[in-house]
Simulated scan of single mutants.
Amino acid sequence: MKKLIILFTILSIGNMMHAQEDLFDILDEETPQTKEYATATFKGTRILNGHSVENRKKGVLEFIISHRFGRVNSGVDELFGLDQSNIRFGFEYGLTDDLMIGVGRSSFEKAYDAFFKYKLLKQGIGKNAFPISVSAFGSVVYRSVDDFEPGNEPSETDRLFYTSQLLLARKFSPAFSLQIMPSFIYRNSVAIQEDPHGIFAVGIGGRVKLTKRISLNGEYHYTVNPLESIDTTNSLAFGIDIETGGHVFQIILSNSITMIEKSFITESTDDFFEGDVHLGFNISRAFQFGKNKKKKLKAIQESNE
């Protein structure tokens, strides 16, 4: 009898322990885990011509110089395009870790641009994490060049162009990232009546990491309803990112000579595969404002690795 009681007691304790383990498993599944997010989906704030989902951290000011030369197939007389150039310089600042603003000036059309980029969602790491990062981008461009016929001066509003984009990106692995960019560009004025005021486009860009500090990038934008007044082509670019401390240096080959969305998405006219290729580069330098400058800059550099 005593043996039966002892056996029954042992079995009861075993069942209680098993039930307790099941309860802990349920509580573990239902308890929120510490959130972790994917970092360095791209090395910089640009894929090549267009923006990436990356923002500068709060308090970081970035100075960017972008340069595009003439066509490589223009021949030795033009030093394979190096005699011609288009330049844009800009400043970008992180108001918060998720909100960045910027301004720039391009020599092409003497255009001034301003933009914001806000990170709506962040790709998470682990179980039940959100699978992609999503940013909203918006810009306005003022075309200041005076290339109009006498007596046909445009109004100030006619010189304005607007761009809206959603940037949808996923870092599939430490070596591979992909981004989709649905875009809408609105023009207050058009050259001919047949030109659409609103143009829809879809872009795709990617990054393949080759070494700790070097990656290969590609970018393509397909225009759904292009302009009728000029014979446009879809923007295509390939390039290499080189990250060195606070600098990100990009070497680019593209059929687009411009560096703002309203231009390279809707106004490119060169054919990449017929040799109408423009050599170019983007170079940036980040500066930290506020407390703990060295510590924050070191964190920025490590996040790019």
Results as ranks from 00 to 15, higher is better:
Val141Pro: 14
Val76Trp: 02
Lys119Arg: 15
Val140Asp: 03
Asn152Ile: 15
Val103Arg: 10
Asn86Trp: 13
Phe172Trp: 15
Asn152Thr: 15
Asn152Arg: 12
Lys117Ser: 01
Phe130His: 04
Phe63Asn: 10
Phe172Ala: 15
Tyr118Met: 11
Glu109Met: 09
Ser74Pro: 02
Ser106Asp: 14
Phe148Ile: 15
Ile180His: 05
Glu62Ser: 13
Gln179Gly: 08
Ser66Thr: 06
Ile64Ala: 07
Glu156Cys: 07
Asp83Arg: 11
Val145Asp: 12
Ile87His: 00
Gln84Ile: 03
Ala169Cys: 05
Asp158Cys: 12
Pro150Met: 13
Gly104Gln: 10
Ser183Glu: 13
Ala114Gln: 15
Glu78Tyr: 13
Tyr162Arg: 06
Ala111Phe: 07
Ser144Lys: 08
Arg159Leu: 08
Pro196Ala: 02
Ala191Ile: 13
Ser74Thr: 02
Glu92Lys: 10
Tyr112Asp: 12
Ser183Ile: 00
Ala169Leu: 03
Tyr93Gln: 04
Asp113Leu: 09
Arg187Cys: 04
Tyr162Trp: 12
Leu61Ser: 08
His67Met: 06
Thr96Cys: 05
Ala169Val: 10
Phe161Glu: 07
Arg143Tyr: 09
Phe63Ile: 15
Tyr93Asn: 05
Tyr186Glu: 03
Asp147Cys: 04
Thr163Gly: 13
Pro182Asn: 06
Ala136Asp: 01
Leu121Cys: 02
Glu92Val: 04
Gly81Pro: 09
Lys122Met: 08
Phe130Tyr: 06
Gly138Glu: 11
Asn188Gly: 01
Lys171Pro: 05
Asp83Met: 09
Gln193Met: 07
Arg143Ile: 11
Asp97Ile: 01
Leu61Asn: 08
Leu160Lys: 02
Lys110Thr: 08
Ile87Tyr: 00
Asp146Thr: 15
Leu79Tyr: 12
Arg143Asn: 15
Pro182Ala: 10
Glu194Ile: 06
Glu153Thr: 14
Phe115Asn: 05
Lys110Arg: 12
Gly104Ser: 12
Asp98Tyr: 15
Tyr112Glu: 11
Phe148Lys: 14
Gly70Ala: 06
Asp83Ser: 13
Glu62Arg: 10
Glu62Val: 15
Glu62Lys: 09
Gly75Met: 01
Val134Ser: 01
Phe91Lys: 02
Phe108Gln: 12
Gly126Asn: 03
Ser107Tyr: 00
Pro131Asp: 03
Ile180Cys: 04
Gln193Asn: 14
Arg105Leu: 03
Leu99Asn: 04
Gly75Gln: 02
Arg170Trp: 11
Ile101Ser: 06
Phe176Asn: 04
Tyr186Val: 01
Ser106Gly: 10
Ser189Phe: 08
Leu167Val: 05
Phe130Leu: 07
Val72Pro: 02
Asn86Tyr: 14
Leu82His: 04
Arg170Thr: 07
Val141Gly: 12
Gln165Ile: 01
Gly104His: 10
Leu167Lys: 08
Gly90His: 05
Ser106Cys: 11
Ser144Trp: 05
Pro131Cys: 00
Asn73Phe: 05
Thr157Gly: 12
His67Phe: 03
Ser177Ala: 13
Glu62His: 01
Ser139Val: 06
Met181Tyr: 09
Lys110Gln: 13
Phe161Lys: 00
Glu149Trp: 11
Ala114His: 15
Ser74Phe: 01
Lys122Gly: 03
Gly198Met: 07
Val134Met: 09
Gly205Ser: 11
Arg105Lys: 10
Leu61Val: 14
Val145Ala: 14
Phe176Gly: 02
Asn188Trp: 07
Phe108Cys: 06
Arg68Ala: 00
Gly205Asn: 10
Leu82Trp: 14
